[in-house]
Design a protein around this nucleic acid. Structure first.
Lengths: 187, 187
DNA sequence: TCATCAGGTAGACACTGTCTACGGACGCTG
DNA sequence: CAGCGTCCGTAGACAGTGTCTACCTGATGA
């Protein structure tokens, strides 16, 4: 098998394009197959179930997020680094909205824990490092980093859904992000 | 019409029972109708679409959460109040898992903004009050309260999905919650 | 008594994910 | 070269879904 899994990659690619263009709801198995130019039974050769295909698509999202984080400059002031990381997270959620929603659909996380783990590890490492430098006195930086990650994630989620706009009336999540970072990092 | 919308209430009630017992995935229109003892076309008289029915079910969830929060004692130490509120939120997510997932499905939030707004208003008011008392110097308590809400929500969400357990290996979200509150409230 | 009409039924439609049987092209072996 | 498997994709069936439509039925009011 010289060119194996050719269709597999094509399917994932098609799924990525589809979720980016039309959102999560458009990601039916048959629609992906249709756009990929194959019959609806073809994906089954590579993905035992619909969820597995979606999980593979979500993996690409994890990689993209990881890449963005890897390209981040975090060697300077840790507070600035945390702010930049937060902005990056919010920006990812906004610009890659469909992807972001897909990545955190819990049904998909079931069989994809390893993938998520692998992808979130660098993210989390950066976060732990930043927290450790920004709060030198902290005894367990991973706990604080976890709490802060949850804060960023919740911010992205609730903002994307417009839930926060109901209470704080502005279109810019920036102030909320700043308030969060300011709370976690003593000035 | 003396006893109107009898079926409507029955459908919502059935939906609540169903999502509580079997989770979000079991909440199909036809299944709800089946369990309610009516034909699959019946709900249409009361809910123009499936989403509207689910939104009505989610409303009950909002009310339950509001009720729990309303029963909370928050007059004492604001830090203790925030901790209790956080625990309540996490507890709600855990014990009413299906409901919690349903309540924050973004597709449902579309036509249900008023419902969510009405339900989150008391929650948010309590939060703003606690933040205001815990951080007297804060100029805009609503911004901080929003950020803190996002923190609690993200904590609940990521914990429920097991995402945080991957990085912080314990089954108790307590430490993370405490780290979050400790960050927001200067000791 | 009869007409109206809200409120529920039942069937059709297009669509979904999964399963199964089939087909055809490929490479390997005799 | 003939034949045989073995991938890999096709095509149809099946149960299930949400929505739409026509129909029925029983109570209410003139």
């Amino acid at each position: 098998m010289s060119m194996p899994d050719q269709l597999r990659a094509h399917l994932v690619e098609t799924g990525v394009a589809l979720v980016t263009a039309e959102g999560t709801e458009a990601l039916s198995l048959r629609e992906i197959a249709r756009r990929a130019g194959v019959s609806h039974g073809a994906p089954r050769r590579y993905f035992p179930t619909h969820r597995h295909l979606l999980a593979a698509v979500a993996r690409v999202g994890y990689e993209r997020l990881s890449t963005r984080i890897g390209a981040l400059e975090v060697d300077g002031d840790p507070r600035a680094g945390l702010l930049a990381l937060g902005r990056l997270y919010l920006d990812f959620a906004r610009t890659e909205r469909g992807m972001f929603e897909l990545m955190f659909r819990h049904e998909l996380l079931q069989g994809n824990q390893e993938g998520l783990r692998a992808a979130t590890k660098p993210l989390f490492a950066v976060l732990v490092d930043l927290v450790g430098r920004a709060r030198p006195g902290t005894d367990d930086a991973t706990v604080v980093a976890g709490a802060l990650w949850a804060n960023l994630h919740g911010l992205a989620q609730l903002w994307l859904w417009g839930s926060l706009q109901m209470t704080v009336d502005t279109d810019d999540p920036g102030p909320l992000l700043r308030a969060a970072i300011d709370s976690y990092v003593e000035r």
